[in-house]
Structures are given as C-alpha cells and as structure tokens.
C-alpha cells in the first residue's frame, strides 16, 4: 500500500511538509522515492538562502535519473539533513523520517494552506 501519512501536507511535485509553527521540515514522498529508484546523491547547496515557493533548492540523483527539488513554500533554508551526504539511500528506506531533506523558516506560513492534505495527495498518485 502507498504510504501517505495523514499529518503532513503535500506538493504537486511530490514533496511533503511537516509544519511546526513557523518552521517546516521537507522531504520527498514515498511515492516519489519509489518512482526515482535507488537514490545515490542528494545535492542541496542552498543552506542559509531565502527562497520563494517553487524555486529549485536542490536535486536528487537516482541511478537512472535526476530530479529537481522544488521548495513547496517560500522561506529560509535553516538546516540541511547532514546524514544524507553519507547515506542518500535513507531517502528510499525512510522517506518521511530519517530521509528528510531540509528544514525551513517559512516566510508566510499561510502559503502552506494551498498545499494538499493526505487525502488529496493520495488521490493525485492514485493510491
């Protein structure tokens, strides 16, 4: 069964957000990691930068393909998951947990209201 936790918000680009106050933790969904296949490199060179929603904050390289990472809501990238450098495959094994990618301080937390809830995202991916 497709794994779509109920407590997260989702973007059309298959990223998830876990919102805590003005902060949000962001990663890619279980569906996204499954489509990408074995992830071999997560490149996020934007730590400390403040970016708008839909801007590319990094890329994820799988064996067969590369995919951009789009910021679902605007904000400052305050932390990049330091463990992914040595163990990018964590994104495959634990997409919603240890495979998180960045933490951001949202510029406007109300932007997150436009994102999908779990029900809408599950419908998008046909789960």
């Amino acid at each position: 069964m497709m794994n779509v936790p109920a407590d997260l918000r989702y973007s059309k680009d298959h990223e998830w957000l876990r919102i805590e106050g003005d902060f949000a933790t962001i990663g890619i969904t279980d569906f996204a990691q499954g489509e990408l296949g074995d992830i071999v490199f997560v490149d996020i060179p934007t730590e400390g930068e403040t970016m708008d929603a839909e801007e590319v904050f990094g890329s994820v390289e799988a064996v067969k393909t590369v995919s951009d990472l789009y910021l679902p809501v605007g904000g400052e990238i305050v932390e990049v998951n330091p463990d992914l450098d040595g163990a990018p495959e964590t994104v495959n094994s634990d997409a919603y947990g240890a495979g998180w990618m960045v933490k951001i301080k949202m510029s406007d937390p109300s932007e997150a209201d436009a994102l999908m809830d779990a029900t809408a995202y599950a419908a998008l991916i046909g789960a």
Partner: peptide, 8 residues
C-alpha cells in the same frame, strides 16, 4: 522491465 526489486 527496467527493474524489479531495485537497480542496486
């Protein structure tokens, strides 16, 4: 088939 369990 491009993969079954996974490329690696």
């Amino acid at each position: 088939p491009v993969q079954y369990e996974g490329v690696s």
